[in-house]
Computed example of a mutant assay.
Amino acid sequence: MAHSQPPESDSGEPRRQRRIQSIEVGMRVLRALTEQRRPLPLKELAQLAGMPPGKAHPYLVSFMAAGMVKQSPLTGHYELGPAALQMGLAALQQLDPLTEASQEAALLAARADLSVALAVWGHLGPTVVRLDEPRYPLHVNLRVGTVMSVFNTITGRVFAAYLPEPMVRTMLEDEHRRVVGGANGAFDSPEVSRMLAEIRATGMGRGLSMPQPGVNTLCAPVFDAAGRIALVMTMIGPHGVFDAEIDGPAGRMLREHAGNVSRRLGHDGQTTA
């Protein structure tokens, strides 16, 4: 479906759309309440919104009438009201992690000139649902629909670091039975514990020539509003070109784009497992 564009002026440049300044000013009050996540007195709220209390108060009165803000009868402090909660929940219900992540993945692939894959947790394990290729595609055994190993790929390990332990243990044991056969106790090994702890500490996973020789990977989790891992964004490139350093230029780009998606999904920086 085509997106409507702003009308053009006689000079051919897009005309600036009409804006209502009072709404934009009032949003500074709501933004301050949202960012602080606690009831605020009028003076502090006005200061955070960048306006004098006498200017902030009429906005608060209007927002209270609309249910966007409520005031404590005991302290007189202001906080977000029931209408703001309903609006936030409605926005979250409309969000689709893959849709939100797809644009960032495409931007990252173009910016870094590397392959970028998005994977979700499917019934067989980490599953590739999108793959953006650079100008010169890297020939790897990866395509949309590929199911990745839980512990033999960096993408799988990042999922394992943030998913609930019983879920990961069940998937790993099932994978071991299908590939190797017999019993498996790998999840409880010190090496696995150290590996997952390192991913949580750095917030990313890094693999050199893994799972394919000569190919490096760097993976970052994307979280939803509840702090749960929603998907993993993976950068892939040849060893001689892509060093996959977590704190290098590519790592910073990946962290930036994955963080953009997490914020759009309502993530506040706290994770759950």
Rank of each mutant, 00 (worst) to 15 (best):
T127L: 10
L40W: 13
R143E: 15
P41D: 15
N141D: 14
A56Q: 00
R37L: 14
G122F: 00
Q71M: 14
P52E: 11
P97S: 06
E24R: 04
G88Q: 10
H139L: 14
A49G: 02
T99P: 06
T127I: 00
I23D: 10
V144Y: 06
Q71K: 08
Y78G: 08
A49R: 06
T99G: 15
Q71F: 12
H77W: 07
M87V: 08
R130Q: 11
M51A: 02
K70P: 07
P97A: 03
Q93P: 03
E100S: 10
L85Y: 07
L142A: 08
L138C: 05
M68C: 08
G122T: 06
R135A: 10
L114N: 01
A105C: 11
V61N: 09
R31F: 15
Q94T: 05
S102K: 09
S62E: 15
Q71C: 13
P82W: 00
V140R: 02
L138N: 04
G125K: 00
L92V: 05
P73M: 02
G76Q: 05
P53Y: 03
A117Y: 08
L107R: 14
A84E: 06
D132K: 05
L118H: 06
L30C: 10
K70R: 13
Y78S: 03
A56P: 00
A119K: 01
A106T: 14
A65L: 02
G26S: 01
R38N: 03
G67V: 05
P39S: 09
I20M: 01
R143W: 11
T127F: 09
H57Q: 08
E104R: 07
M87N: 13
M87P: 07
L95R: 13
I20W: 04
A49E: 09
G125V: 09
I23P: 02
R37C: 11
L98E: 06
L131H: 09
K55T: 09
Q86C: 05
T99V: 14
L42K: 04
D132N: 12
A112R: 06
R130D: 07
M64F: 00
G145N: 00
A84V: 04
M27Q: 12
Q86V: 12
S72D: 12
R19W: 03
L60W: 02
L118V: 03
V116H: 07
P97Q: 03
R37V: 14
M68R: 13
A83E: 13
P82A: 08
V147N: 00
T146H: 06
G125M: 00
V140E: 04
A91H: 11
H77C: 03
I20A: 00
L42I: 15
G122S: 01
A101E: 04
E104D: 14
